[in-house]
């Protein structure tokens, strides 16, 4: 088992036996084990990171149920409230900064890379917290139609999003898509980096102790290949965010898209360097929104003379 850096030791003569952590998943605000009882042990440079749940189809289903149940009330919260809840995540992460850096190092990052990823992650939370009550103004419109109607278009959340998180940036990659998904009023089920799942679990613990309502974010650990057909076909899932380099033929992206077509899911494949500043932007919020247009007649009477 990988060892954590011990920054302070009470008595170097008698090193204490560390308590090993049981990594569980995050579903509906709780931390269940997989119902399947299966686990796997990802390894970095030959060392095992610990035992992680190998999510089953049933775990996926439970997570989607939780996400669906939470979606309407999450979307109905005021934008200001969502903004504060997201900001609270940053406060929680800041407090766990050291742990998050340690864990990234355990998962193979250099100290510098790890610190940079954590700091950028926290900044990103703050960035999207600020967008919650602003993107609507940027992307909405009042449309000058020729008939006497008031006509406007606004963004609405797509619904429940399944997010296959970045393999390589276990914290920043995950947040870089979860945050815009949440900012837009969606709820999300994430499949954590299968090779580096620790950060996602720690993040879940931050979320559980923050103000994010249960079910808004759900985190599964496991294997994409095993789950892909199930989430691509699950009819309660409205969109899929696939953080994977595109490989054109016979890739997992292809089979996900093929299955997703049965329920016309919106499938977005991302292959972005999340460390780059331009890859945080409100267009990612828009990707998980639907444009709704509303028409209403306008009374045709004005001070320049009644027109009826």
């Amino acid at each position: 088992m990988a060892k954590r850096k011990t920054k302070r030791t009470t008595n170097p003569e008698h090193p204490r036996l560390p308590v090993l952590k049981t990594y569980k998943m995050f579903v509906g605000g709780k931390f269940p084990r997989t119902e399947s009882g299966r686990h796997y042990t990802p390894r970095v440079k030959g060392r095992g990171l610990g035992n992680f749940c190998l999510a089953s189809r049933k775990d996926l289903r439970n997570a989607v149920v939780a996400a669906r149940a939470a979606q309407a009330s999450w979307a109905e919260r005021s934008a200001y409230n969502r903004s504060q809840i997201l900001y609270r995540i940053a406060e929680m992460l800041e407090g766990r900064r050291g742990q998050l850096i340690d864990e990234l190092e355990i998962q193979g990052a250099t100290e510098g890379q790890a610190a940079s990823e954590v700091d950028q992650s926290i900044e990103r939370v703050v960035y999207y917290a600020g967008w919650c009550d602003k993107y609507q103004q940027v992307f909405s419109s009042v449309n000058p139609v020729a008939s006497p109607h008031f006509n406007f278009s606004v963004l609405e959340p797509t619904g429940v999003v399944f997010h296959v998180a970045s393999e390589n940036r276990p914290l920043l990659g995950l947040l870089s898509l979860v945050l815009p998904i949440l900012a837009g009023g969606n709820t999300v089920v994430c499949l954590a980096s299968s090779t580096r799942p620790i950060s996602a679990i720690t993040l879940s613990e931050c979320l559980a102790t923050s103000d994010v309502p249960a079910g808004v974010v759900n985190v599964l650990t496991g294997q994409l290949a095993e789950l892909s057909a199930h989430f691509a076909g699950h009819r309660e899932i409205n969109a899929i965010a696939l953080d994977r380099p595109p490989r054109s033929k016979n890739s997992i992206a292809q089979s996900i898209r093929e299955t997703a077509a049965d329920s016309l899911k919106r499938v977005h494949v991302y292959n972005l360097n999340w460390a780059r500043g331009e890859n945080q932007n409100p267009y990612l919020i828009r990707d998980f929104c639907e444009v709704k247009t509303v028409w209403h007649p306008v009374e045709q009477i004005s001070s320049s003379g009644p027109g009826y």
């Binding site: 139609v145 020729a146 639907e290 247009t293 509303v294 028409w295």
Partner: peptide, 27 residues
């Protein structure tokens, strides 16, 4: 849950007004 809501009206169309659906009505 629909891309176009016609309130006290119906089947109005205009080039300035976005049209399209949710769910299996397309994207």
């Amino acid at each position: 849950k629909a891309g176009v809501i016609w309130a006290n009206s119906y089947n109005q169309f205009d080039p300035a007004s976005p049209f399209g659906g949710y769910g299996e009505s397309g994207f």
